[in-house]
């Protein structure tokens, strides 16, 4: 079926067109998931870039439908390790959009967001990605009951931040903790 690379491009283009033309939420979700899965294979990067799928995924992050957010974030997670896609995301103010997804209720969305942030790390973006508020968030994640979240947050803190940064963030968190010493049940 994929004898020629142009076939693959046309197929992906059909997907993008369907996504834009259809008003059926379900179909949109399916196509979005499809595109996000295609983004897993680096061989498709070139086509997806041409079709501006990176922008499409970024658009999804502000949608109300949680499935859209999850699939879009998953697609970005898959794309963002490619240097050119990373630069596109960075140019389109991707960091703040992705950071917002850290607050999602869905674990998959949060995990994709953390991995994407790690991929977006460049000397230029470092200060924004290792902003104290994100570090605090990661420190909280590293106490989570979910092993996946805990591990990923640990990798972020160990690999993307300096020890001083983490220590400083921990100190700030401690200050907050002692304000009221009663541990509340987590809701």
């Amino acid at each position: 079926m994929w004898k020629k690379s142009s076939d693959r491009f046309e197929y992906l283009q059909t997907l993008v067109t369907e996504f834009q033309d259809t008003d059926i939420e379900e179909a949109k979700e399916q196509v979005l998931a499809n595109l996000a899965n295609f983004a897993y294979d680096p061989k498709n990067m070139e086509y997806l870039k041409q079709l501006q799928v990176t922008d499409l995924f970024l658009d999804m992050l502000t949608e109300e439908n949680e499935n859209f957010v999850e699939f879009g974030m998953g697609g970005l997670c898959n794309l963002s390790m490619d240097p050119e896609c990373r630069d596109i995301i960075l140019q389109n103010s991707g960091i703040s959009l992705v950071t917002n997804c850290l607050s999602s209720q869905r674990e998959e969305t949060v995990l994709s967001a953390i991995t994407t942030l790690m991929s977006l790390l460049t000397p230029l973006s470092r200060s924004e990605i290792t902003h104290p508020s994100i570090l605090h968030c990661m420190l909280r994640f590293s106490l989570s009951e979910s092993p996946r979240l805990r591990n990923l947050a640990a990798v972020f803190l160990q690999d993307c931040c300096t020890e001083e940064q983490v220590a400083q963030a921990e100190q700030q968190m401690q200050g907050q903790q002692t304000a009221v010493g009663i541990p509340l049940p987590q809701d």
Partner: peptide
């Protein structure tokens, strides 16, 4: 500054457990 910065991820990842 560090103190009253915007909080990211205000809903903690842990789903309602209690």
């Amino acid at each position: 500054s560090g103190k009253n910065e915007p909080l990211i991820g205000p809903k903690l990842p842990e789903p309602p457990k209690l």
